[in-house]
Design a protein around this nucleic acid. Structure first.
Lengths: 338, 338
DNA sequence: TGCTGGCACTCGCACGCGCAGAGTGCCAGG
DNA sequence: CCTGGCACTCTGCGCGTGCGAGTGCCAGCA
């Protein structure tokens, strides 16, 4: 177990390194933080911290920088979440309230997060999984071609074209539309399959094939679209990394293009609060020198999607966590209102 | 006017510089291209080309590199468009055919373009302007709340919630839906306003306000959504630039985040064929050291949107133009089929 | 036992130097 | 109008040096 002072030293190292981007030495530490002890003592503490793996030196006889493990301890024990100031909160709210539709909400959220944190922002579209169906619409495009439109309570719209095995009359279509909606409107996605199971039986024999086809397309849409979409922004902030970074930025950009990777990244965070994954804690190799700060957000009490930022492990964790948390909260409010 | 040989020299310089990324000297030129003259002669030609502003030297006594003006001449007069090979064409077609909906088509197109050209790809969603209406759907969400869903022939779906001035019965709604569709289905957007102008008159007095509101929302949607959306990808390819480029990549990433800038960029290209904007020809300052290769694509004979790539001025123009043209062609086909 | 000051040591980094190589411009001759 | 030759000009690179920041260790002190 580390003594109280050593934890203080670690905290000071993290703070200074985040501020200056340079390895921090014992002398500079005692000057900038009133630890009440001499550099020599700090050196001993540093040696101990290094033995434990919390800090490391890039080269012999250079200052120390925190390791992933050091940041982890810092985040878990030494730092809180820095709340947004009142003006910041107001600005967030104002900016988000201007949104006209779901796409716009997500787009604005991304820009906001990127600006607040000066890092790369990632926002997942509200998931269908926990949503409810607001309405299902069926349109006849051709005698044997139907368009299925699904509208969710989060304002998302999905459409699919269905090729029917047999021509399908307008009357049957209206009938199906009515029956379908009376059963699934305001129901959760998860409940839909069992609710429509016996629907084909209500129809004439010749229409049953089509009804089944439409239904299975609907179910597919419900499931398939859990391949969530997401939006990213603020990639220009990557250039604020060190100057070393053509090597660093490359794999990050590549990772950001892989939606699957990002979704997994966000998905891993299961905590109710803000989750932080530091450096090598990220499974994806290209993100080994970045940290991901993410949190769930939702229109009601429940989280329906995640959002977060990706930045260098050397980031302002308290500030970033505060910004992420605040944005998530207000996005949730906006979604609930609409 | 430049002699034939001087044009050859310019072409050789562009080709070599694109290949090696290094300033090219007179000796290397004569070795790699059989121009049939000595280095000394080439030097004279180079001096002339430099006087005319087609090439420049980064420092005294270094090789020459093409200027924007040089690339312009190269693109206009010296190089054709390199067609894709048959296997490449097949690969493009196969890859695009897997798409399930419009979003997917656009997403795949972006990835394809980025991979083929190894540059940043930008694809505009099919525009509403030149599209036709496939169907307008009206859904009653509440007595005085209607959802308007617009489906276009390019597969795009837009929805808006309309707050009505007065409650609106289901019968009236069905009536409006039927009348609306019989008038505007398969009509071009531009024609819609005049086609629905007198529609309120067909309704009872108490419903006219609502009908007008719905109609004006519809017209708004048609216009508003000309703020096109677009998708970009392949930003990781930016790291293939020189090593100099933390300075270069930054403004480019910033520009790419500004959808407005990109839309203007694509919009400027009016030619029926492939358009190339080189370096300073781009109005946006951050893109002064990049070239944009773009082309229109469409589901029918007409272009409904643009796509293109953004890369360093030092790019393989013939190859890039070929890839862009081919992709546009096949995307058009896919859109026409669906 | 733990803190402190002192001291020798280790590196990384910036600087200055010189050299080689590539490329140029110019000139005189074919 | 082309060619070979020649003197000149840069850039980039490798090398040695000195400086400074920072460390580890040790002996002394509370």
């Amino acid at each position: 177990m580390l003594s109280e002072r050593r934890l203080q030293v670690l905290r000071a190292i993290v703070q200074d390194y985040v501020g200056t981007e340079e390895p921090v030495g014992s002398k500079a530490l005692t000057e900038r933080h009133s630890l009440g002890v001499s550099p020599a003592t700090v050196r001993n503490d540093m040696a101990a911290l290094e033995d434990e793996g919390y800090i490391a030196q890039p080269h012999t006889s250079a200052g120390r920088i925190p390791t992933d493990k050091g940041y982890r301890l810092f985040v878990d024990k030494l730092a809180g979440v820095k709340p947004m100031t009142a003006p910041e909160r107001r600005a967030i709210q104002n900016f988000l309230e201007g949104a006209v539709d779901l796409d716009d909400v997500v787009a604005r959220t991304v820009r906001l997060l990127a600006q607040l944190t000066r890092q790369v922002a990632v926002v997942q579209y509200p998931s269908l999984t926990r949503s409810t169906v607001r309405h299902v619409e069926l349109l006849s495009l051709a005698p044997a071609r139907v368009m299925l439109v699904l509208i969710t309570d989060t304002g998302r719209v999905e459409q699919r074209v269905v090729d029917c095995p047999a021509p399908f009359g307008d009357a049957s279509l209206a009938d199906l539309r009515a029956r379908l909606n009376s059963r699934v409107a305001n129901r959760r996605f998860a409940d839909v399959p069992s609710l429509v199971e016996d629907l084909p039986e209500a129809f004439e024999h010749e229409d049953r094939g089509t009804v089944s086809t439409v239904l299975s397309t609907l179910l597919e849409t419900l499931v398939e679209e859990n391949e969530e979409r997401l939006m990213i922004g603020g990639t220009a902030n990557l250039t604020r990394f060190g100057h070393d970074f053509p090597l660093t930025i490359r794999p990050v950009l590549e990772a950001l293009e892989e939606q699957v990777v990002l979704l997994k990244l966000l998905g891993e965070a299961q905590d109710p609060g803000v989750t932080v994954r530091i450096g090598h804690e990220n499974a994806h190799e290209g993100l080994n020198s970045t940290s991901v700060v993410s949190v769930g957000y939702g229109s009601g009490g429940e989280a329906v999607a995640k959002l977060g930022v990706v930045g260098p492990t050397r980031m302002d964790y308290p500030g970033t966590m505060g910004a992420v948390r605040a944005v998530a909260r207000y996005v949730g409010q906006i979604l609930a209102e609409s």
